[in-house]
């Protein structure tokens, strides 16, 4: 799989609207345009499973594999009780569901700052950091999450 495109800060700042997806208490920020739909976890069919997924949701005649990631983006085989909403992500090339604690649109675009060089490799899914009220949002996108899921599912399948 090719490496996901790494956007510059200037490119990221052109994103008009970001959504905050809370995973295990950590706020992850994605372009709102990549959120196709929000679904109830009750609609997840646990019998339809992609590798390392927790099930799938049917939408538009397609099955969307659903994954549960920790706040630090580790695969969780069992969703915690706090996960109450499923965001279906679609960037035209990658398509999957992510079980979240909470999903909300940010009213204003936050100030984006670079991830310090000593804190992450160029392959990090974190493209930028965004100070929010009392917390720090990590900016990523569907392409980076899909690449990470590919690595995680491949690694988990190898054991």
């Amino acid at each position: 799989m090719s490496q996901p495109v790494r956007n510059t800060l200037a490119e990221l700042r052109e994103i008009r609207a970001l959504a905050k997806l809370t995973l295990g208490g950590y706020p992850w920020l994605l372009p709102q345009t990549e959120i196709k739909s929000l679904e109830s976890p009750l609609d997840i069919d646990r019998e339809v499973r992609a590798p390392q997924g927790i099930g799938a949701i049917a939408l538009g005649g397609e099955w969307w594999p659903v994954y549960c990631l920790s706040g630090e983006l580790r695969l969780l085989p069992q969703p915690p009780d706090s996960r109450r909403i499923c965001a279906l992500l679609d960037n035209g090339a990658d398509r999957f569901g992510l079980l979240c604690d909470q999903v909300e649109a940010l009213a204003e675009p936050p100030r984006l700052l670079a991830l310090p060089a000593c804190m992450g490799s160029p392959a990090s899914p974190i493209q930028a950091l965004a100070p929010l009220d009392e917390e720090l949002g990590c900016v990523t996108n569907t392409e980076h999450l899909a690449a990470l899921l590919a690595v995680l599912t491949e690694g988990a399948g190898g054991h």
Binding site: E72, L73, L129, L136
Partner: peptide
């Protein structure tokens, strides 16, 4: 706290 950061530099 910044997730996925190294153990010696986990915060900003």
């Amino acid at each position: 706290e910044v997730p996925l950061s190294p153990y010696y530099c986990q915060r900003v």
